[in-house]
Design a protein around this nucleic acid. Sequence first.
DNA 1: CATATGTTTTAGATCGATCTAAAAGCAGTC
DNA 2: GACTGCTTTTAGATCGATCTAAAACATATG
Lengths: 343, 343
Amino acid sequence: MLARRVTLLDVAADAGLSRATCSLVLRDSPLVAAETRERVQASMEKLGYVYHRGAASLRTQRSHTAGLVITDITNPFYAELTHGIESELDAANYVLILGNTADRRQRQDQLLATLHENAADGVLLCPAEGTPLETLNMLRRWQLPVVLLLRHLPNGSCDYVGADNILGARQATDHLIEHGHRRIAFIGGPATSSARRERYLGYSQSLEKHGIDPSAMPNLPGPPTRAFGYHAMERLVSVEMQPVAVLCYSDVVAFGALLALQAAGLTAGKEHAVIGFDDVAEASLWHPALSTVSTSPRSLGATAAHLLIERIADPFGERRQVILPPRLVVRDSCGQHGKGDAR
Amino acid sequence: MLARRVTLLDVAADAGLSRATCSLVLRDSPLVAAETRERVQASMEKLGYVYHRGAASLRTQRSHTAGLVITDITNPFYAELTHGIESELDAANYVLILGNTADRRQRQDQLLATLHENAADGVLLCPAEGTPLETLNMLRRWQLPVVLLLRHLPNGSCDYVGADNILGARQATDHLIEHGHRRIAFIGGPATSSARRERYLGYSQSLEKHGIDPSAMPNLPGPPTRAFGYHAMERLVSVEMQPVAVLCYSDVVAFGALLALQAAGLTAGKEHAVIGFDDVAEASLWHPALSTVSTSPRSLGATAAHLLIERIADPFGERRQVILPPRLVVRDSCGQHGKGDAR
DNA sequence: CATATGTTTTAGATCGATCTAAAAGCAGTC
DNA sequence: GACTGCTTTTAGATCGATCTAAAACATATG
């Protein structure tokens, strides 16, 4: 009952040709005669032949498979990123293997090893917190091309795609200050990640430029989750004796913050101001609509996938760092505070 | 410079044994002597050998790969589902290939073909709207095991994992009625999907049981998105001349609805009531916290992955339909309306 | 010592494609 | 008919594992 898979050999027999010729037809080789090509295609159709990529991969040493290793697929930012990656890879006829690390290094190592075992042609890696340089060295030893996403590693001469975090945070902070805020908190985001450090840097630069001492401002690092945003904002509101302006590590954190304001009977956009980071689809729908620094998660993903494919084609080419420009999207959650300088 | 991959043959040479013996070691065969096993393992360690699953798959006809085909990875419900699937598959030493259909049948067919080409051992399929039975027949011809998720097809004698939509919707509607609502809308969800039909059925049953004519109630099918929830609720609020109670197709739709209420200066949980479906992580964080019918997306995913693995092991075993029980989680968004019967 | 029994190892075929190097077929030319 | 040059086809090795069937070895038994 178990029908054997139809192979090229079957097709060849049916068409009265050799396996090699059929293989050439598969690959659209200009070598085969038009009439022959049609005969082969007819046989394939007739027998219900399906290409067996695994077999081909063994010979060609190309699996047309790429791995994506991320920290939390449940985070809408990563979900959108994944979506961008999946489309781009698919367009290039690549298949996507997904792995979730939950930000644990050990899990990440396992996943990378699995990808190597499965002969992935390359990996897109959003490194878990505290990923050591050794992880990249291991990938190099395996000759497994990598593109780092969003977070980079110290030193790492590695392909990288990310947003201009410094500029984005600076623009957002400038905006808050220009609209009268002199007390601006920065909340959320894992303290040691490069993305957090960069965003905090841009924020500090802006504050200093305007004569404000960053170290006097509330700085609350933490997981990039709604729950943390909520708790951080709850705390801020109860401690501060004045309106709060907050720059959030990400939209997800900002959503939490907005909820906390609501729960306290307050609204962002009047006295209080909240700005997020990323611009996930949800941001524009909120009430008040979330002002945010757009990093276009989908294009980030597409760009990274594209770079990976190029790197696979040219493994020894010069490494590239692609920094996409951010765009401050002003909506309602950061509305003007007082008039001009409210000091 | 390009180091060739270390193969079993290299290991065998180093250990002074045959390739076959090394292969047995890899598979923890009891046949090999303890001393031999150690020698082989030492050689593997020394040479940096990495298992090549692709090569093994060619011979064993098992790729240890499963496909997941969903409609929208960006939807938090699917993201959580995916998370559950990924963990479960990983625990069983399977790798996950992800494909996103955007609810388009043609894309879905492509993805399934790709999975077949890549010799996936099985597929988890959330069928796109209007998927014909022919799609399942094709999979059967390919002898590619499938588990349907969330939506089933008419007739289809196919493995299926989903929630008890009818019961869930009935419980939610009962709850609204018991708390004084007599006018209850049902919004969101693709009109023709089985999940929508079942939820609507449960809702109708409850209404009828309480002497309310379902056809007199607002019924607004539409995409399962925040945006649609927002627009639907906006419309309801402007049209209805009385407080609105709404059962939403999903939490995502409910979030949109809550935002629309807020935008209109209203709050769910007092006069107005909103109940969602799914209980994604975000639901409990909202303000007001969203009452919802929990379908535990993560366990749905884990259950489905588990069933798929069993089906792969026993392709001709009897098909199973697993319906997970729902649980009404009452939070703040459906608070009591008036006292008792508010007619 | 021959034989039986059990344990451990292995040669060689195999999975289904691609790749190389050569052969076959066909014109046209001398 | 032999030779060249061009197009088209093919035999057989190859990728890196597993699987089968048999060999090799060790030990015990009559």
